[in-house]
Nucleic acid binder design. Sequence first.
DNA 1: TCCTTGACATTTT
DNA 2: TAAAATGCCAAGG
Length: 113
Amino acid sequence: MSKQNYERIWATVNAIPIGKVSSYGQIADLAGLPGRARLVGKSLGQIPKGRKVNWHRVLRSNGQLAFDKASEQAQRQKGLLQEENVVVLNNRVNMKEFNWRPDLSELLHTLQF
DNA sequence: TCCTTGACATTTT
DNA sequence: TAAAATGCCAAGG
């Protein structure tokens, strides 16, 4: 049951277009789990090996990366984002510019609701 | 069933 | 603007 939620979360995360970012709360909502932002974080920490999820496009609601600036994960995330032309300054992203505005019809198509 | 934990969010200092 | 307090809910032990 929770596994299904994880799958849905991962699918939603993968629906984020290149060059855009989203937040945990936003992903939770889109995945049909309003108010379960923490579950999103948990699911991202439980990604099975061999499963490809672009977790680097998910950050906190204020645009900050969810890791310590010095952490390796943060560095990797920063690099991955910059490869997609997303500007990362002082461990945070300009949400006003890069926040993803999901296209509902496209989302429905991707998630097969 | 109770208690702790968490890659969070929102409100208040 | 930044840090702290409070709320939230699912998972695991």
